[in-house]
Simulated assay, not measured.
Amino acid sequence: MIIFLNGTSSSGKSSIARELLRVLDEVWFHLPVDAFHAMRARRDLPPAEVAAVLRRTWQGYHRAVAGMAAAGNHLVVDHVLSEPWRLRDCVELFDPEETVLVGVHCARAELERRERARGDRPAGLAAGQIERVHAHGVYDLECDTTDRSAADCARRIKEFLPVRPRPTAFRRLRDQERDRDRDRG
């Protein structure tokens, strides 16, 4: 199973993921997209190459997640789906019946406060991602970390897992994509 946390930078995804590892039964792995970016050598790249390197990083990350899940591992993934192709890639790769898509929301003012406190993100990054990250509008479950703790969100997700409805968000998104492809073709 994959618990897929999607939200802006500083929305609380990693904090929820850490709490999920603490409260979930069985063995779970947290695979944050930031860990994949951190593995890349820090080199100055010509601006024309940055987008291609980042895209390959995200594509590799998606395939690593799919591989871990295919090997029978339970995963908590935290990601920023700020570009439509990222969601399409994940929907194509991950088993839609075993993926729970969780929208992680947070008020703009709180996102900005968290960014300032972290000091490791450009100012305005999260606020600039809000509309794009949640543009697809389809989730199995949504959490708002503005006033709710990561532990509360993790407990809510854990309680949701055994009663999650069908079709899943990933199944609905996959079906929407196939309908679009059929209409285009």
Rank of each mutant, 00 (worst) to 15 (best):
W85G: 04
V77R: 09
V65T: 12
V80R: 03
T145R: 12
E83M: 05
E49T: 04
Y61D: 03
N6A: 14
A64N: 06
G119H: 08
R56P: 00
R42F: 08
P122Y: 10
V27F: 07
R55F: 08
G72F: 13
A151F: 04
R63F: 11
G119E: 14
D181L: 14
T99Q: 04
G67N: 13
H37R: 01
G119V: 11
R121T: 09
E142W: 07
R118C: 06
G60K: 07
R132T: 15
D152M: 01
Y139H: 15
H79S: 09
S14T: 15
V50M: 02
D183G: 04
R156N: 02
L54Y: 03
L21D: 00
V76T: 08
D25K: 14
F160L: 13
H105I: 06
R113C: 10
C143W: 02
Q129P: 12
A127G: 13
E142A: 15
A66T: 07
E177Q: 15
H79M: 02
K13S: 12
R63D: 15
V102C: 05
L111Q: 04
A66L: 11
T57H: 01
D144W: 07
A64P: 00
L81T: 12
K158T: 08
A127Q: 04
A69I: 13
V53Y: 07
V65N: 03
L21N: 00
V50W: 01
C106P: 01
F160I: 09
V53P: 00
V27A: 14
L161F: 08
D144I: 03
R40K: 15
R86G: 02
R42V: 10
T146C: 11
A17M: 11
R156I: 09
R43I: 03
E97R: 08
A64M: 13
K13A: 07
L173G: 01
R180A: 08
H105D: 07
G128L: 06
V104G: 01
A123V: 15
R132M: 13
Q176S: 05
A48N: 04
